[in-house]
Design a protein around this nucleic acid. Structure first.
Lengths: 194, 194, 194, 194
DNA sequence: GATGAATGAGCTTTCATTCAT
DNA sequence: CATGAATGAAAGCTCATTCAT
């Protein structure tokens, strides 16, 4: 009586999150139905409702779990002096955080319209804005402010836009980080090399 | 004779496209129903089907109309010498094209997951790749290739990521373009100032 | 100015009937839409409404045109003496009428449920009953009455049920007729060869 | 505890099949909507989709359940010697099978055009052809092959074509069977009484 | 003799969600 | 810890039909 069936431990909640994220990232949030998730898990739809209150709640819980590292980076950044060194370190940590929870961030990137008016929407926006604020100087020339924004978006873009360039994944990540760091450096210390 | 039950003018097709794009951009493709579109136009859903074969077809038709300028930029770029001047001009033209059809590109940015497996998905990917190819040198160091990618994505990001920075819209556009040009310049002529 | 387009004569009504019957027989009445008919004819749906009042009206008109021969057979039969010779002749004429308007009768055979509550439904039933009445003797033993019914249905079945038997179409028709005649003969003159 | 809002018994699936078959037979497949079925059952349309994947699936499930006896007759026939006795027995068993699932077969008879391109279409054709093959000799004269076909169609026709002849239902069935047997007998042993 | 534009009703299907067991 | 059965709402889509031009 202990064969064929699933690993009967209390890890169902986790499994739901895993499968859900996989499908959300692959197909988008709206196009993924609870039926699909439950079938892939070989449980009933009702089982999902035992573990989560709504479909949105599944996504929120995933987000809350995986977004922690990013929150941490921001929290950490807020307590550091606003030096160039700090900014570089923020980028490095953010890059790493993104990489670790790549499927979630890919999902968020590709489902902005959906995510925007879900409850996490505001959170996400705040997060990115918080990051940018740590890096850019509101009194700097517009161009330099754009550079900082661009640095963050470069990290984002680096996660998906490089599939068609060949090279080792880690190498690519480093190159992306380097470009971002470069942008922020130029923004931080304008005139340095122009 | 200009009131109640407006006299079926011949511009319905255009009006459908306008309203649809507006709603698609605002709420996302999936969350915009044909009922919503038709109600806003004060026609029946069936009327939409007189003008378009499917919901997707509405989007495709909008895309085909508004994407033309971008196609043109790529076509033009392909026939120019691959000089730095050309690259700058491409960025400038692309920036302008994006601005002119901002709602469409905002929509595409925020609905990537959806758009990906619609029929226009491939077209879009090709378009961006085509642009990047015009700008980057496949034999350049990875970092410089990333710079080119980053330049394009900076233009994209500039359309929505700057709402929280104040300043005149046109000023911002120029700043964004300047950063993009700078990135490409550094990629084109590496070592210049490092 | 007289090339590419359709044979611009006033034969549209006829062409509609032809195409409609073809599609009705092929796909069934309900599954054939007016859009399909009009597209195949390269006219608009509205054009169909110029020539016919409703979809049903198209079918009715076809029926009225093609059913005439059968009506004639019955009318003729009613004025003949009720001899075996007459019955044989009725079967022969009916067989011929069926063959000539095969698509219509195939259609009616395969769409009984539909046709039943169309306005022609009653007509059709009357027609078959009328035929059977000409052939069977209401006072004959049940078995012989069934033989007469069977004779008629054999003619019907012969139109479609023989596709998997090989042989010349006309040969098959004759064989079918022979069996039908035989059935009626046995019913007419019971005990003859038993 | 037996009134209002009946206590969701476990027989809903069966009830759906019953009501569906009733309506399909009465009005035809296309003209019967799921709304109609669900209203007659006092459940929602969505409930139907809990039990069946599609409208077609409802029909298929009915067919699979009720067609079994016919399949059995053919299977049985295939293992018997091809004697006249066997053939008679096949007809008898087939007649009985038809009678027991009369509504289904009435439906199939009257909705051939519809059923033809549903997934059961091929099955049905094979079934009739299988039966005919058990009875007719492919080397016999064409007329005798027709007799066999006619025998089978006589059984079919007997189910609906006799409503206007009075007499006890079982008597009529026997008469029909007798005529069919007679046809096959004459086909099996040609020349006997001609 | 036809078309262009539209409608109203209806269809099959899908979805997130609920709740008694 | 989960299921079986069901719901209410809505979606995308198709159809026969109408009517001014």
């Amino acid at each position: 009586m202990s064969s064929t069936s699933q690993p009967r431990r209390g890890n169902t909640r986790q499994r739901i999150q895993d499968v859900a994220l996989e499908l959300f990232a692959e197909q988008g949030y709206e196009k993924t139905s609870l039926r699909e998730i439950s079938e892939k898990l070989d449980v009933t739809k009702a089982a999902l409702y035992y573990h989560f209150k709504t479909k949105e709640d599944i996504l929120v819980s995933i987000f809350e779990d995986l977004n922690r590292p990013v929150t941490d980076v921001i929290a950490w950044g807020r307590e550091q002096p606003r030096t160039l060194e700090t900014k570089k370190e923020i980028l490095a940590r953010y890059s790493e955080a993104l990489t670790k929870a790549a499927p979630l961030f890919r999902f968020m990137q590709e489902n902005q319209a959906t995510v925007r008016d879900l409850s996490i929407g505001a959170t996400i926006k705040d997060r990115v804005l918080g990051l940018v604020d740590l890096i850019k100087d509101p009194d700097a020339p517009l161009t330099d402010q754009v550079r900082c924004l661009s640095a963050i978006f470069t990290l984002h873009a680096g996660m998906f836009g490089l599939k068609d360039i060949d090279g080792d994944a880690e190498d690519k990540r480093k190159a992306v980080l380097e470009v971002a760091v470069d942008l922020v450096t130029r923004a931080h210390d304008p005139g340095a090399d122009r």
